[in-house]
Nucleic acid binder design. Structure first.
Length: 285
DNA sequence: ATCGTAGCCTGGAGGC
DNA sequence: TGCCTCCAGGCTACGA
């Protein structure tokens, strides 16, 4: 499941493989794979040169030489793959982009179709140039532009639980269910802890934990539970071995040995240690 | 404005 | 064996 570290691995791969290349054609094989302007995307891409590959949170984009950008969100199962021309099509191939040279083509493959591509103008947000549709999302914690004081102030104003808050991309971007659980465990915070009860030092500790776990995951190529997350060469990451709580129901807490619990949360799961992360008396869901 | 939830989607796992 | 239900979960739309 691609969160910030996984998307960064893909971004880096695209930067290496497509920067400076000129797009020859684009082919859309599934209508849901392109949002807003599926019919014109091929025309918008044809003949454009890719400048680089950029990212904020879980969004990545390729700035183009006409000032627009090809933006991608991988959703749950999206992959960006580089493959030689003529390689057999994947079962869930959604978009194919070919280049005006002999190098590999770029493919957007997505089993569950939660991901999408889009050609969009660029705008300004948080001191950076980003695609217009995502100017509302906050900087991610690995960005220079991330403003810890502003984040702390905004967080304390929220009337909700801490996990719900850090999954809100308008407060902090790039954190998904896996790294939220890992960061909360490292900071010894229960997911339902009311945001307004957190002190600035505790928020700072949580942020440091989020940065640390995501940086470590990046160093191991990201987290792959199944074949759904892979880099541009189709290779899995192996940070799943280093996860402390996520997906480890009933396994011992690496810190104290208490069996990890799984709670239902927002129609999905939260993993935590009952001893290190006691349930707050006045928690919020 | 703020907060919380349903629904989108496919395929693997597990129950019967 | 095959059918059924559950589960994974980021984001948008929408209701309170």
């Amino acid at each position: 499941m691609p969160e910030l570290p996984e998307v960064e691995v893909v971004r880096h791969g695209l930067d290496v493989w497509v920067s400076g290349r000129t797009i020859e054609s684009a082919e859309v094989l599934h209508p849901r794979a392109v949002r807003r302007q599926e019919g014109v995307l091929p025309d918008q891409l044809k003949g454009r040169r890719v400048e680089s590959a950029d990212r904020r949170g879980k969004y990545l984009w390729l700035p183009l030489d006409d000032g627009a950008a090809l933006m991608a969100h991988l959703g749950m199962s999206g992959q960006m793959l580089m493959l030689p021309k003529g390689a057999p099509d994947e079962k869930h191939l959604r978009v194919r982009v070919t280049f005006a040279d002999d190098g590999p083509e770029m493919r957007f493959v997505d089993q569950r179709t939660f991901g999408h591509l889009m050609v969009t103008p660029l705008g300004i947000s948080g001191g950076r140039t980003v695609p217009e549709p995502i100017v509302h999302i906050a900087p991610d914690p690995l960005e220079e532009a991330f403003d810890e004081k502003a984040f702390t102030a905004a967080l304390k104003k929220r009337q909700t639980g801490i996990k719900r808050a850090i999954l809100d991309q308008s407060l902090i971007s790039g954190v998904g269910n896996i790294y939220a659980d890992e960061a909360l465990w490292r900071a010894k915070l229960h997911w339902a802890r009311a945001t307004e009860t957190l002190t600035a030092p505790k928020i700072s500790e949580l942020l440091a934990a989020a940065r640390a776990v995501m940086t470590e995951a990046l160093g191991q190529g990201g987290t792959s539970f199944d074949s759904l997350y892979v880099n541009v060469n189709g290779e899995s990451g192996y940070f799943d071995r280093s996860l402390s709580v996520y997906g480890r129901r009933d396994e011992p807490c690496p810190r104290c040995g208490t069996p990890i619990r799984r709670d239902a949360f927002m129609n999905r799961s939260s993993y935590s240690c009952p001893t290190c992360q006691p349930r707050p008396r006045n928690g919020r869901w």
